[in-house]
């Protein structure tokens, strides 16, 4: 398992992406899956920064990555007030307008997405992606 803790400053998103990318390399997922998983985690962190902490850059976000032979699990934990998971819904893509795409990306990319609030711990977002490993000879 790999775990990092950042403050909720968007400048640290690049570090989160680098870490997730390295984990994806270690488990040998395809380049497309790697790009998608990086995007999902980045969007989830951005959502916490924007919506849970309302742009306060000094709050805590923990990111844990765990991999098994066929999946990668990512857990994000914040210390913010409870988030109503029922309100976190992807918007329709029929309407072309800016904003609201982050949740769509997360839900589309990850196979399992679960939000929970643990009293005293904050919000926990658990995301799982089942992997299609690179075929022999396939390069990134």
């Amino acid at each position: 398992m790999i775990e990092i803790k950042i403050t909720s400053d968007p400048k640290f998103l690049t570090i989160v992406r680098a870490m997730v990318g390295k984990v994806c390399e270690l488990v040998e997922c395809s380049r497309e899956e790697e790009n998608q998983i990086i995007l999902a985690v980045d969007e989830a962190c951005s959502n916490i920064m924007k919506h849970t902490y309302h742009g306060d850059p000094g709050q805590s976000i923990e990111i844990r990555c765990e991999s098994a032979h066929d999946k990668i699990e990512l857990v994000l934990q914040d210390c913010g007030p409870p988030v109503d998971a029922r309100k976190i819904k992807p918007r329709s893509l029929e309407e072309v307008r800016p904003g609201g795409l982050g949740t769509h990306f997360i839900r589309t990319i990850m196979d399992e997405v679960k939000y929970e609030h643990v009293e005293g711990c904050g919000n926990i977002l658990r995301m799982v992606k089942y992997l299609h490993r690179k075929q022999s000879g396939e390069s990134n």
Partner: peptide, 12 residues
């Protein structure tokens, strides 16, 4: 790399 905030800017 581009995330949803960058895409939103392109749409805008």
């Amino acid at each position: 790399y581009i995330d949803s905030s960058g895409i939103a800017t392109l749409v805008e």
